[in-house]
Design a protein around this nucleic acid. Structure first.
Length: 435
RNA sequence: GCCCUGGUAGUGUAGCGGCCUAUCAUCCUAGCCUGUCGAGCUAGGGACUCGGAUUCAAAUUCCGGCCGGGGCGCCA
């Protein structure tokens, strides 16, 4: 066969009827009726039907019906209109090449009538990802990430790449993965936080990164990963955190909008994406606490919102007509050391929430090195460990701020997916290191 | 880190001291069938997580290991 593919399944049009075409893909199903057999081939764009007749070519017929499911084959044949077939056409084979034989039985069915557990699916992720539903998730993921690049570049942000192997933990507090770096000890980056801030001292002004977060926390929940991705952004010469929130809400709106245009994929997932209203509602932390207390929560001022409180707030906001909303002016103690204080008790830190789940958090940052050192000490961190970071603040650092925005969490909310592991190709959780 | 829950053919399940030679579906193998598209029909195949303990008798009870799932904390 000189070429394995002249058309994808869905690219065949009426113009091709009556012509020889070549298609290739995975054997999804074989229905052998006796003297006639239907072989369903799946490719990137969908499926099509090969119709083989025993009396026409016995050898070819036998070859086709004896192939194991999920083997990869290429078929050259006559494309013929047929209203009885779903695509409106079928392919009458003239030449068949088996490119790869799949072993039997499959560890996981692609179109079987029984569901598999997530563990089985992840152990055989390459097969699991052949399912239409899972392909839809990652096609939409691609679209929303493309929307990030498109939107932020239009806003004069440039994409950067900062180190994942770092010398000290980014923010203290949460657990980091320790690794050996020749004769030294190093860590996997918990986030690009310190580096994107240092870039604010360069004059690049507006940067973003599709970043990997590595976190060694031993949680086992359906919304945590030990390796996840995020849109991490930092911008200089801001007046306050409102400048950042404006970018964030426009970004989210654009991602949501692009996703809503993926009609085929959303159909497969059975999801209806409704565009949010701009601007997103701003609630101060103080207001949030009052609202929660009114609804019976016993949360006290200064506490960070627990899962129950977040859910309750999601319900309250829904009643007020908001799916997306900010919580602003957090207590200083609830935010990391680099967060800009506002007075003694408050900070210029905010969270973006969607239906009771935290999607992003950000803030205006401290750009005064002395204040930064003070805050490090208050947070029980040693300024000496942050020397190379602090140096970036001594020779001209403009006011700045930014946010981190989890991509998998976003997809969970967008597509109503219950387990975050479904939103990343090869998840890393408390116990999973392969595949 | 704390707490709760599971582990039965390739996949997903039923059974929860003797009726188990372990249910059903899917799957796999062979056969029949010229319009299937959740094809149908016939026949066959395949499993109790591991190690101890209790008992006349353990898939079933107890203890421990291994491997999962989930909740909280923390976070994205």
């Amino acid at each position: 066969m000189e070429s394995y593919r002249s058309h994808y399944s869905k690219d065949v049009t009426e113009k091709d009827y009556g012509k020889l075409i070549t298609i290739s893909g995975w054997v999804e199903d074989i229905r052998n009726i006796g003297s006639i057999a239907f072989i369903i081939i799946r490719d990137k764009k969908g499926t099509l039907q090969i119709t083989a007749l025993k009396k026409k070519n016995l050898e070819l017929f036998e070859k086709l019906v004896s192939i194991s499911r999920e083997s990869v084959i290429a078929v050259k044949g006559l494309c013929k209109a047929n209203e009885k077939v779903r695509n409106g056409y079928e392919v009458l084979p003239e030449e068949v090449e088996i490119l790869s034989v799949a072993e039997t039985p499959l560890p996981l069915g692609v179109v079987d009538k029984v569901e598999s557990e997530l563990e089985t699916r992840l152990d055989n992720r390459f097969i699991d990802l052949r399912k239409q539903r899972n392909q839809a998730i990652f096609k939409i993921r691609n679209v929303v990430v493309a929307a990030v690049h498109e939107f932020l570049r239009a806003q004069n942000f440039i994409e950067v790449h900062t180190p994942n192997i770092i010398a000290s933990s980014s923010e203290g507090g949460t657990d980091v993965f320790r690794i050996k770096y020749f004769e030294k000890e190093a860590f996997l980056a918990q986030s690009p936080q310190l580096y994107k801030q240092m870039l604010m001292a360069t004059g690049l002004d507006r940067v973003y990164e599709i970043a990997w977060y590595f976190r060694a926390e031993e949680h086992n929940t359906r919304r945590h990963l030990n390796e996840s991705t995020a849109v991490d952004l930092e911008m200089a010469f801001i007046n306050d955190e409102e400048d950042i929130m404006k970018i964030l809400e426009d970004l989210v709106y654009n991602m949501w909008k692009k996703a809503s245009e993926c009609k085929d994929e959303l159909d497969v997932l059975g999801v209806n994406v409704v565009l949010p209203k701009l601007p997103f509602k701003r609630n101060t932390y103080d207001d949030v606490i009052k609202k929660l207390n009114n609804k019976g929560s016993e949360i006290a001022w200064g506490d960070d919102l627990g899962t129950e409180d977040e859910k309750l707030l999601g319900e309250i906001m829904k009643d007020e007509g908001h799916e997306f909303y900010f919580i602003t002016k957090y207590p200083l103690d609830a935010k990391p050391f680099y967060t800009m204080p506002e007075g003694d008790k408050y900070s210029r830190g905010f969270d973006l929430e969607c239906k009771g789940v935290e999607l992003a958090s950000g803030s205006q940052r401290i750009h005064d090195v002395e204040l930064l050192k003070e805050r490090l000490k208050t947070c029980d961190l040693n300024p000496k460990d942050f020397e190379s970071y602090l140096k970036g603040f001594r020779y001209g650092m403009p006011p700045h701020g930014g946010f981190g925005f989890g991509i998998e969490r976003f997809l969970m909310e967008l597509l109503d997916i219950k387990n975050i592991r479904e939103c990343i190709l090869f998840p890393r959780d408390r116990t999973r290191l392969t595949p």
